[in-house]
Simulated scan of single mutants.
Amino acid sequence: MSPWPYPRWIAHRGAGKLAPENTLAAFRLGAQHGYKMIECDVKLSADGVPFLLHDATLERTTDGQGTAGERPWIDLSRRDAGAWHSRQYAGETLPTLQAVARWCQANGVLLNIEIKPTPGTEAHTGGLVAREAARLWHGAPVPPLLTSFQVEALRAAQQAAPELPRGLLLDSLWHGWHSQAQALGCVALVCHHALWDSTLVAQARAAGWRMLSYTVNDAATADRLWALGTDGIITDRVDLFAPA
């Protein structure tokens, strides 16, 4: 396998559940707990601005309503993305990928970008996010890792910025996943932690893929994954696991 530049521990959506997910406040808290790599979700506004949000809709984590991808960035930028979590984060905004890139590079933090398209925009989102990531991290010593559950999004990312590393996210071992990961030129599989066993580890090693797991929040599961020889863990529990 080629050298792997990413750390073993990755903070989920910034700081898991300790701060409002996918905000710079969460990134800062994850970094304060010693995490050197953060996972986040990126989608597009209606006018093509890559920004951080997990859900297709705004209701759960902002004071907005409706499908986020149908709103222009000027509208999304005014949404409160912190008050839902706790009073101390009221007024926290949705960050753009550009703002996140600036923060990560200023603070020496690596990034796992999960491409999270609004349904129906998989190829458009994958291509645009990859091109923007390549521009923002141009010349950086370690590029972001692009991942997605959506094969179409990863294929578009591969075509738009083939130099950026890619990983296929899997919540089940669906028919054809192995050949798709090969065709996409993936460097990693990012699986729900329960999928990993000695058979899957052997398949990944034979293909030259690194092995990451989501979302691991207890020590027993983490110990099992390390014993299997996997390469990285995405966790909400930045307060429980010391990344060093």
Rank of each mutant, 00 (worst) to 15 (best):
L145Q: 05
L170S: 11
T96P: 09
T61Q: 07
C186W: 06
S2K: 13
L18C: 02
R155A: 14
A204Y: 05
L195T: 07
Q203P: 00
H33Q: 13
F27E: 06
C40P: 02
R60F: 01
A68D: 02
D47W: 09
N107T: 06
Q182M: 11
A31D: 02
G126W: 08
V109Q: 03
Y214D: 00
D236P: 06
R224T: 00
T147Q: 15
P144D: 10
R135A: 15
T147W: 05
L184I: 07
A123H: 09
V129L: 11
R135N: 09
D75N: 07
K36G: 15
T62C: 13
R8C: 02
I234Y: 03
A220N: 10
C191S: 14
L170T: 08
C104H: 03
W196I: 01
A207C: 13
H85K: 14
A90L: 00
T125N: 06
Q182Y: 03
I233Q: 04
T61H: 11
L44F: 08
C191Y: 03
P162H: 06
R205C: 01
T57C: 14
V187G: 10
G91E: 00
V216L: 10
G167F: 03
A160R: 02
F27A: 09
T96R: 12
G232R: 04
I233L: 15
T221L: 02
Q182R: 15
A202W: 01
T57Q: 11
L94C: 05
L240Q: 13
Y89C: 03
L170C: 13
A133Q: 10
T67L: 11
R71E: 00
P162K: 05
T57G: 01
V100E: 13
Q158D: 00
L53T: 00
T23G: 08
L240I: 09
W209I: 00
W84N: 07
P3F: 02
L169H: 02
R87G: 14
V129G: 13
E39Q: 09
S172A: 12
P95M: 02
D218N: 15
S148A: 14
I234V: 15
A90I: 00
E132T: 13
A11G: 01
P5A: 09
G232D: 02
L154R: 10
I74F: 11
T96L: 06
L173P: 12
L58K: 10
Q203M: 10
H33M: 07
E21P: 07
G185W: 08
V238F: 06
I233C: 08
C186T: 02
G66I: 06
T199V: 14
A123W: 05
K36L: 13
A161T: 00
G139C: 08
T118K: 12
D41M: 08
